[in-house]
Amino acid sequence: MRVLVTGMGGVIGTRVTQMLEARAEVTEIAGCDFMPPRRRLHRATFKRIDPRDRDRLVGFVTEFAPDAVAHVGVYEPDARMGTREAAASTEACTVNALGAAARAGRLERIVVRSGLEVYGRGRGHPLVPDEWAPLLPTTPYGRLCLDVERLAAGIGRRHDVRFGALRCAVVAGSHAPSPLARYLRLPAVFVPAFADPPFALLDTDDAARAFVQALVRDVDGPYNVVGPGAASPWQAVRRGGRVPIPAAGAGWRVAVRVAEVAGAPVPPHVLELLRRGRVADGGRAVTDLGLPDLRPTQSVLDDLFEWATVTRLEPAGREVVA
């Protein structure tokens, strides 16, 4: 299997590539992103391409002619780039990479990254949606994820290619760039004054495993991928030893401004998560993707606040020199 990994430079993309490298049935791996991979890769080919550079991206993908695409290049606003840039890069990457892969003529399957944001959190929406709940996104990132799913599904239908969408909970970890994680790590954190809605998290490695399983198991359709259990803003803030500051109504506008000044911009989908929560029923992914051991949300949350201690090492050979 020849696999193209878009967004290979990100934490998830790099881990997906490492896991694919360990599988015998994957013969060749190629990937691209606007930044280099986070870890060492052994047999994958990486090319640094801005997703908006249509000619280079199309040329690279056409030359590789993949059998399968892991479309990780869906950029969350304020994770590694601003909202507009993330939307433009995601759309360009989806249209150009998937279109070129389909036209190359060997494509059999596509797996795209999506998010639980596609369900929206409007009034009357299900509290814990499964994959067949109505798709009514209420934030720009939710609409972006839904656009990606629709574009990929359209390509899949036109070229008779199987298509899987992984609707991931917030992917978090001590090394993953995430606006929610950055916000929760502030010394004082605004939380809802009169509610404590639940939200789910997903470990970076589990997100990568879901991609690999979806590719090798050749699955079709959408899958909610969420860490078991949930956390809530008040509980998370206390767990991290931060100071909770209750906010309500117009107070959230101030909260968003303050957080932005403090270096943790809060995009609308993160604000919605804090105020209304975001969870989903992930049972289908557990059975169909063979992921019974996903890391629980509380464990991912603990990891978010863990920092490695700096150990002072004595310079080697000091005694010899002396």
Partner: peptide, 15 residues
């Protein structure tokens, strides 16, 4: 326990 955030929350918001 509550001050340290050492309690579970379920997917439905139950504590």
């Amino acid at each position: 326990r509550r001050a340290a955030g050492r309690y579970a929350v379920d997917e439905f918001g139950g504590d």
